[in-house]
Design a protein around this nucleic acid. Structure first.
Lengths: 332, 332
DNA sequence: CACTTTTATGCAAACGTTTGCAATAGTTAT
DNA sequence: ATAACTATTGCAAACGTTTGCATAAAAGTG
């Protein structure tokens, strides 16, 4: 029913190949087509409401202008930033993106997403905030499509990634608090079963160690990066009278900490300093503004996309982190 | 290079059609294939690492399992909720989604996105928070693909949408504030050039009118739904000594209002009541918790997707709104 | 004028599937 | 034993493009 290249050819009185070449601006061996033909064909194409059939094109050319993105089911605010970066870079190269959602830790859903993406002839796959199960890891490798992980570092050396150095994040945040005179610092809300959480905790411990502060088990309370985890942590930490600062696993956790602390009549930052991680927009929106370790999410998207598109050797890299100053930390 | 159905056929010693039918679980006229054949073919497919070629399938079947989503460039927090709804419903029907970003008010980008989507044989198009220019509107219609607008109502009767009733939002929010004893109520941060902003303003005015409160031009300050618009509005409204409540165009605006008001030593809600619109997660995260008009974003996504997939007659609908209670409004 | 070169276009194969229609070989019923 | 099924499989066309090669006409060149 829809107009095809042949329809145009018939109306214009030329061959399909002519139409094809004109419509995709391809010059033939010597020069090109007669300008008259070109304008006529283009005009007819427009009149007939012609739309390219991407499936046909992809079938014959065996390539596509599509990037696959695989996301963990819950698209957090920072995933959004990464996607923005991807989009920006992709559109620069006239590429489309297709997005598939994998569950948080659901192998079957992960595989589903991988299949979905790999069945379309995508130019590459960007995996956001995901760690694959061994089986799925194997599936990804055998698909023979360039891929890169974003935002979470991978341990296998051939699984390249662009992410922040999470050890550094924990280390620098803690260092910052110590430099502001804090000594009793809690670390809360991170998912300690995850690689990311583990690394950040390691960084935290290292910073303490370098300043000869004894690590205190009671000061570490796990969670899952959520608002409620911050609330929960404060509830538990109520009894810790010496505590002067809390390092939250994410900005969201920090918000929970701040609100719960306020309910308990603690003033921030004079009674309690709070520091977040991520440096999302949330920092500016809550009160007092949150001091946080800012990650370069947008940059991760851009860099990852670049690596895929430019087909240079794909390799792992850490993006920079920086301190985003707010008003939630004070000198003690 | 990649394995095709023919490769499998050769190895298995059967015809490509057999492989095709087995791999897509299609039964033939009478019963099916021999179980032995079925298991053998499936095994070989797996061994050979076979991946379907979607382009080929879409070409021959002339349909696809793909939904197109067109987004305004800045994916706000609520767009995320809508997308979640779409994803949920889509995956229920084993459909994929492809996302294209159109600029905020950039006709060329809009067209680009429309082309991108319509060239792939998508089952339908979901347009999020977008109003098309007349030309692009025409392009969309002529593509002959089912479409539906989400989250922003359209005036043309054949452009079906699922959205909140924005007049109602303005009306009910204002009503709520009036019922809480407020009389001098500002309306700030909405984009008054947009249809949505206009409707909400109308609702606001209607509520005032019904309670015989004179509409006050100085109480309305436009913006673009952003945090800074809230800050800006409070700066201007400083001089209005009678003001006891502010209705913000969005939750983000409300956050700006609250923070700026606090800087000016106003206590919320005792000195100033603030109400938001959208009912996003932000409401729970900021302090005090924000009272807001909650929109059913997730539901919009689900409903829109359902309409497209189930191919029933597509029609416009309003989703429900409700009051999300916080602590930012007090009785005056 | 007889060539060579240039310009403008067409032919036909190929991409990897799906699917309507046949076809073959057993099996039953008459 | 013949007809009538039934179960299992294969043939070949079609989907809408792209693209290497061929061709025909026109324009230069000596």
């Amino acid at each position: 029913m829809a107009t095809t290249i042949k329809d145009i050819a018939r109306v214009a009185g030329v061959s399909p190949s002519t139409v094809s070449r004109i419509l995709s601006n391809k010059q033939t061996l010597y020069s090109g087509y007669a300008t008259e033909t070109i304008t006529r064909v283009k005009q007819i194409a427009e009149d007939l409401n012609y739309r390219k059939n991407r499936s046909a094109i992809e079938l014959v050319t065996k390539t596509s202008q599509v990037l696959g993105i695989i996301l963990s089911a819950t698209p957090t605010n920072f995933a959004q930033e990464i996607i923005s970066g991807i989009q920006k870079e992709a559109s620069l190269h006239h590429m489309d993106t297709i997005i598939a959602y994998a569950g948080e830790d659901d192998d079957a859903l992960q595989l589903q997403a991988l299949k979905t993406i790999s069945e379309r002839s995508v130019k590459g796959i960007l995996l956001l905030g995901i760690t694959l199960s061994p089986t799925n890891e194997h599936f990804l490798r055998s698909a023979d499509i360039p891929y890169i992980f974003l935002s979470v570092a991978q341990s296998e050396p051939d699984l390249h990634f662009i992410a922040s150095n999470d050890f550094d994040i924990g280390y620098q945040a803690t260092q910052y608090l110590i430099n502001h005179g804090h000594h009793d610092i809690a670390f809360v809300g991170a998912n300690l079963e995850s690689c990311v959480g583990h690394l950040r905790l390691d960084g935290y411990r290292q910073a303490l160690k370098e300043h000869h502060i004894t690590y205190h088990d009671d000061y570490v309370i796990g969670g899952n990066w959520l608002y409620v985890d911050g609330v929960h942590a404060v509830n538990i930490l109520q009894t810790q009278v010496n505590l002067t600062a809390i390092l939250a696993g994410s900005d969201l956790v920090a918000a929970g900490v701040m609100n719960r602390a306020r309910q308990l009549n603690r003033v921030i930052p004079s009674d309690l300093s709070v520091m977040g991680i991520d440096g999302t927009l949330l920092c500016d929106v809550i009160y007092p503004q949150l001091t946080s370790i800012k990650q370069s999410f947008y940059e991760m998207g851009v860099q990852g996309t670049k690596q895929i598109i430019e087909k240079t050797h794909i390799e792992s890299a850490y993006t920079s982190i920086s301190i985003k100053d707010g008003a939630s930390v004070t000198t003690h």
